[in-house]
Simulated scan of single mutants.
Amino acid sequence: MANDLSIARRLDFEPLDDQLDDAIRNGVAPGVVAIAATPDGIIYEGAFGNAGLDDDAPISPDTVFWILSMTKAVTAAACMQLIEQGRVQVDQPAAEILPALASPQVLEGFASDNTPLLRPATRPITVRHLLTHTSGHTYSLWSEALARYEEVTGTPVIFSGKNAAFDIPLEFDPGERWHYGISLDWVGKLVEAVSGQSLDVYFRENIFSPLGMKDTGFLIGSEQRRRLATAAQRQPDGSLLSQPYEPPQRPEFFMGGTGLFSTPRDYLAFLRMLLQGGSLGGVRILKPQTVAAMMSNQIGDLNVEKMVSPRPARSNDFDLFPGMKHKWGFSFDINAQPGPFGRSAGSAAWAGALNTHYWIDPVKQVTGALYTQVWPFYDDQVVGLFNRFEKSLYQAIEKG
């Protein structure tokens, strides 16, 4: 463990170290990195285990992880920059920027011969709908209907990096409800259309380079590959099997929903920027009021719903706050009540499908993240470890 700040040295993180170390010894993951910060800086770094089951390299805060849906917050931040500049309006029809969204179709079911039954959507998709997962676009990973549609039509999944993956119908009319999906991939295309740059270049010039995030991007070099963590698959008996996997390195489009690689230290710079109202180290990425909007309810009376997966090898069913109403911002899950492990009401959070998890607590002014590379998403053992990490971190801060 490395804690560089004097505040960190005054806090008792030994119980947290023990919990993380024990988890690796007990097979929760091949390796884990946990990291946290306050506005004063990094207060905790813990790294235990190896980069993979078949990799003797120790895992570290500079290990490269495929962060999957942690990409979405970066894509949303890029879009919010364009909104600040007046180049995009939150409630404008997205088709004004992306003509491919001009005539969305809604999937109503399937005929007896498996032909999809479609009808025109009753209203246009707005930028807000895309930023808040209320557009009607879903993921086949958490939609039996869309999984069936992709199978009968031969449509590739979004993780393929193929543009044909966008040729899917909506599952409900825009604005009707919340359902997690590919909306932020559309936002990535929107950022490209407005900026005139590829998403890779836009992110690098406007977010990553200003924040010093040198190891974050869609494409990984040979030196980064040597630091890459390897995925593992949880087996029915609870054991793990090495299962290397990564997104295509020559994609037809840069996946604004799931495509980024990063390191725990790199991504913490992004989280700290948000925690501090849009700036870090004297560099402003977003205005304070923009960050406040991102971490506020943007779906009104709608609620975030439990996601049910038809593909249990890749994801369990999940709900970040069972039994509690929670909302969605631009682009975070927001708990309306205090969380059970320490975070305040109004905190923002999300995760990546290989079980990388984070939260930002604007009230207690702390952000934390935990990194593994374990399938399926919302693995019980990893989620339990993440919860213990959060609880132990807040306990150490309160005692300190």
Rank of each mutant, 00 (worst) to 15 (best):
A353H: 08
L219S: 01
A351E: 00
G257M: 06
L271Q: 14
S262H: 10
N297G: 04
R148D: 08
P58A: 11
M294V: 02
K364I: 05
G277Q: 03
A8S: 15
D40T: 15
Y371H: 09
K72M: 08
A193V: 06
T153K: 06
G212Q: 04
W66T: 01
A47F: 11
Q105R: 13
Q233D: 10
S392G: 13
S279A: 12
G329F: 06
I97L: 07
G27M: 12
D12R: 10
A111L: 13
R226I: 08
L260I: 09
R10G: 15
Q298V: 02
T115I: 05
P58H: 05
H129M: 06
F332Q: 00
E246Q: 14
A8Q: 07
M1H: 11
D18I: 13
G278C: 00
G221Q: 08
P210K: 12
F332G: 03
L5W: 09
R250P: 01
A229R: 08
P247T: 12
V90C: 05
W359E: 00
G282C: 08
F166K: 07
R265E: 11
A351P: 05
H137C: 12
N387D: 14
A292M: 01
V194I: 14
G136N: 00
S6T: 12
S183I: 06
A102N: 02
A292L: 08
P104M: 01
I334P: 06
A351Q: 05
Q81F: 05
P310T: 10
V187G: 02
E390P: 07
D18T: 11
H137I: 14
T216L: 05
E205L: 12
G339H: 09
G46M: 00
P251R: 11
D12G: 04
R225M: 10
T134Y: 00
G300W: 12
A193H: 10
K364C: 07
Y180S: 03
A147W: 08
D301F: 01
R10W: 06
